[in-house]
Computed example of a mutant assay.
Amino acid sequence: MSSIASLYIVKADDLPAILDAVDAELTWEAVEQYGAEPDEDYHWSGNVMSSVLDNLAARDVILESSRLREAAETINRDLDYTILIDGEAKGLLDRLDPAGYEPGALVAGTVALRLDGEEARHATDDTLSLLRETITRLADDDILLIHIG
């Protein structure tokens, strides 16, 4: 089964309102109310995004903000797979260059089985480029919320 990756830019001051919505199971509504979608669309499945994020983390490229991990865990009580990325990830931008990876190296498991070599390369390139561009544009008070579900 395929999943969808949704990306939203949320202002840090609005994060408490999203967290408050968790217990009422209105988290998604709060994310849509307070978040703005990036200009660029993501055309791959959430499984591709998840695979790339997991494989980056295995290479010590951890984009998730350590200071926002507790907030992400709270959101995940209502929404399954959500990570929060802030400006501290800008220090990893050079590690998000698609040219630094072999074709499909960050797309593994069942995702890789569904993609041929060219598709895997495009999926990797598109995912890394989107992450890199979105993180580059984060203002000091912005948080990138990625939900996969």
Score class of each variant (00 low, 15 high):
Ala5Phe: 06
Ser6Tyr: 05
Ser6Cys: 11
Leu7Ser: 01
Tyr8Met: 01
Tyr8Ala: 08
Ile9Cys: 05
Ile9Glu: 01
Val10Phe: 02
Ala12Glu: 11
Ala12Asp: 14
Ala12Lys: 13
Asp13Met: 10
Asp14Tyr: 12
Asp14Glu: 10
Leu15Met: 13
Leu15Thr: 02
Pro16Met: 03
Pro16Tyr: 12
Ala17Pro: 05
Ile18Asn: 08
Ile18Gly: 04
Ile18Val: 15
Leu19Lys: 06
Asp20Gln: 11
Ala21Ile: 00
Ala21Trp: 04
Ala21Asn: 06
Val22Asp: 02
Val22Gly: 04
Val22Ala: 09
Val22Ile: 11
Val22Gln: 10
Asp23Tyr: 14
Asp23Leu: 08
Ala24His: 12
Ala24Arg: 13
Glu25Leu: 12
Glu25Ile: 05
Glu25Met: 10
Leu26Trp: 03
Leu26Ser: 09
Leu26Asp: 13
Leu26Asn: 13
Trp28Lys: 07
Trp28Met: 06
Trp28Leu: 07
Trp28Gly: 08
Val31Leu: 13
Val31His: 02
Glu32Val: 11
Glu32Asp: 09
Glu32Ala: 11
Glu32Ile: 03
Gln33Pro: 03
Gln33Phe: 15
Gln33Cys: 06
Tyr34Gln: 11
Tyr34Val: 06
Tyr34Thr: 05
Tyr34His: 15
Gly35Phe: 01
Ala36Lys: 15
Ala36Val: 11
Ala36Asn: 14
Ala36Cys: 05
Ala36Trp: 06
Glu37Trp: 00
Glu37Cys: 00
Pro38Asn: 09
Pro38Asp: 10
Pro38Cys: 12
Pro38Val: 14
Asp39Ile: 04
Asp39Tyr: 08
Asp39His: 06
Glu40Ala: 13
Glu40Met: 14
Glu40Asn: 06
Asp41Leu: 08
Asp41Val: 09
Asp41Thr: 11
Asp41Ser: 11
Tyr42Pro: 03
Tyr42Gln: 05
Tyr42Asn: 02
Tyr42Asp: 05
His43Glu: 12
